[in-house]
Simulated assay, not measured.
Amino acid sequence: MTKRDILILIPARMAASRLPGKPLADIAGKPMIAHVIARAEAAGLGHVIVATDSEPILAAVEKAGRRALMTRTDHASGSDRIFEALDLADPDKAVKIVVNVQGDLPTLEADDLRAAVKLLDDPAVDIGTLAAEITNDEERFNPNVVKLVGSPAGPDRLRALYFTRATAPYGEGPLYHHIGLYAYRRAALERFVSLPPSTLEKREKLEQLRALEAGMRIDAAIVKSVPLGVDTPEDLETARKLLSR
């Protein structure tokens, strides 16, 4: 697999309910989206492009000397946005793997991004993602912390059986915090966005369940920690402290 085979897409929009305009929030002298781009580029996997519906985000990315694409304003999810951006960026369909990196992960580790893509070395895997063992008791019971329920599929690797906001599975043993980063085979992304929202997806409000309900295989690399997702003003202050060191 070469850099031409892999495209990293970062969906970014201004209309976040808890922290509007967060892609442009200043962190250590740069907008947050610039930090996410730098983290994605550090993985050395392939080209990195921002997919947005916002002219200010487009301008900020271009000011940083990077590429952004304007996409429609009516997408229901980041997956739909990156699928549109994929067709715009690669109309000849040369790209084989598409990585969806959320635009609010300014502390994402490059090694973790590489680990998600590495899962697709197994031809049976449709989608690669990430998980980290939960070590904080509060997270075990927090419905905002999505849990990955899976079977071991090798060292530091799980085959996903379910994703849930509940505390699961029951009994002794580790629980895993799902990290919402996805490496798709191109055909898997095409199939995924063509499917209607599934029963469990609508119930749990978790898009990735659509893939499992359709019989697609998702594997997760187990990583050491969860990158900070910036969703609130408090998260933003934490990011500023971490990245100003």
Rank of each mutant, 00 (worst) to 15 (best):
residue 121 D to K: 10
residue 146 V to R: 13
residue 217 R to A: 12
residue 163 F to D: 07
residue 46 G to Q: 10
residue 27 I to V: 15
residue 225 S to L: 03
residue 80 D to A: 11
residue 222 I to M: 11
residue 105 L to T: 14
residue 240 R to V: 03
residue 210 R to E: 09
residue 210 R to Y: 07
residue 145 V to F: 07
residue 28 A to N: 14
residue 190 E to L: 03
residue 7 L to N: 03
residue 166 A to T: 04
residue 145 V to C: 13
residue 20 P to Q: 12
residue 104 D to V: 13
residue 65 G to I: 09
residue 241 K to M: 12
residue 32 M to D: 09
residue 230 V to C: 11
residue 89 A to W: 06
residue 64 A to R: 00
residue 25 A to D: 07
residue 4 R to P: 00
residue 221 A to E: 05
residue 176 Y to G: 02
residue 158 L to N: 04
residue 101 V to N: 06
residue 97 I to R: 06
residue 75 H to T: 11
residue 139 E to R: 10
residue 11 P to W: 08
residue 245 R to Y: 09
residue 77 S to P: 06
residue 19 L to N: 04
residue 93 K to L: 11
residue 53 D to Q: 12
residue 140 R to C: 08
residue 106 P to M: 08
residue 136 N to W: 01
residue 206 L to K: 01
residue 161 L to E: 15
residue 241 K to H: 13
residue 74 D to W: 02
residue 127 I to S: 06
residue 108 L to N: 03
residue 107 T to G: 06
residue 177 H to C: 05
residue 205 K to S: 14
residue 215 G to Q: 12
residue 220 A to H: 08
residue 235 D to Q: 07
residue 245 R to F: 13
residue 98 V to R: 01
residue 10 I to N: 08
residue 234 E to R: 06
residue 216 M to H: 12
residue 218 I to N: 09
residue 215 G to N: 11
residue 50 V to E: 11
residue 94 A to W: 00
residue 243 L to Q: 09
residue 130 L to Y: 09
residue 29 G to F: 10
residue 92 D to N: 09
residue 213 E to N: 09
residue 62 E to H: 15
residue 153 A to C: 07
residue 206 L to G: 06
residue 17 S to M: 06
residue 190 E to C: 01
residue 231 D to L: 11
residue 18 R to M: 10
residue 153 A to D: 14
residue 26 D to I: 05
residue 62 E to I: 02
